[in-house]
Simulated assay, not measured.
Amino acid sequence: GLWQFTLVTGRYYGLEISSMVDARRDPVASTQAACRYLKDLYDMFDDWTLALASYNYGPGNVIKALKRAGGKASTYWDIYPYLPQATRDYIPALVAMTYLYHYYPDYGITPNDPPIPLATDTVMIDRHLHLDQVAEALGIPEEMIRLLNPQYKQGIIPATIKPYPLVLPQREISRFIDCQSALFARNDDSDEERLNGQKQAEYGQTGEDYKPKEPVGTKYKVKKGDTLGAIAKRYGTTVKGIMRRNNLPDTRLRIGQILYIGK
């Protein structure tokens, strides 16, 4: 994402990270989390350059660098020799970027037009919805919908338990509101078609001839590295179906967890 959150830090600051959603890619949610993190780092060090160095290198490592630099060390430049090259470059690069942002005309730099609309708006979605369905209904490129909603890793808004935001060009909001009921009504049929297509592609079979690799209606113990998407594919079912069958509030799994697959 924009702010280079690690998984642990991202979750600590409230960003959802799962097999379906990675809020580190959401420019609004991740920026809000980054501001909270930077504020906490500034409260810790009382110096913005040290706070920024901590964002890049970690506050524990910056504290160690301050100790190595001696008792009088209190600024980024005091600990500069004790930082890795990437962090040494981080503050000067930020200063240079800020300078160019303000004085780019003096150097003949011309901004490019943005690839996505600047005027956007958000609607909250409380039903399972595919981004390509939205693009088709509105008659706009799916790539634009994905650029505006980069947090949905599989192109699906998994709003089965809680609502999620959908960002659209501002001019399309009214049209989406007009057609969203029809989109939701089509969604169950669309999911069934997608699942059948996945079965045919994976097994070379159609209709009633389909047989899953492993039996359904059984128990599965979660192992390290498992995701709901991978488990669903293995058993010829859907993430939504597994979540409903096991009353899962979200797509996060824990090692050793027992999942019931099938009816």
Results as ranks from 00 to 15, higher is better:
Trp3Thr: 07
Val8Asn: 14
Arg11Phe: 11
Ile17Tyr: 08
Asp22Arg: 02
Arg24Ser: 08
Arg36Lys: 12
Leu50Arg: 12
Leu50Gly: 11
Leu50Ile: 12
Lys67Leu: 13
Ala69Pro: 09
Gly70Ala: 06
Gly71Cys: 07
Gly71Ser: 12
Ile79Thr: 09
Pro81Leu: 12
Thr87Pro: 10
Val95Arg: 10
Tyr99Gly: 07
His102Trp: 10
Pro105Gln: 09
Asp106Asn: 12
Tyr107Met: 13
Pro111Gln: 12
Pro115Tyr: 12
Ile116His: 07
Ile116Pro: 00
Ile125Leu: 03
Gln133His: 07
Pro141Trp: 01
Pro141Val: 05
Lys153Trp: 00
Lys153Ser: 14
Lys153Glu: 05
Ile157Phe: 02
Ile161Asp: 09
Pro163Leu: 11
Pro163Tyr: 05
Tyr164Leu: 13
Pro169Ser: 03
Pro169Gln: 06
Ser181Phe: 03
Arg186Val: 00
Ser190Asn: 11
Leu195Asn: 02
Ala201Val: 15
Thr206Asp: 09
Thr206Tyr: 09
Asp209Glu: 05
Lys211Phe: 09
Lys213Tyr: 13
Gly217Lys: 06
Thr218Leu: 05
Gly225Pro: 04
Asp226Leu: 04
Thr238His: 06
Val239Lys: 01
Ile242Ala: 02
Ile242Leu: 10
Arg252Pro: 05
Leu253Trp: 04
Ile255Phe: 09
Gln257His: 09
Leu259Trp: 09
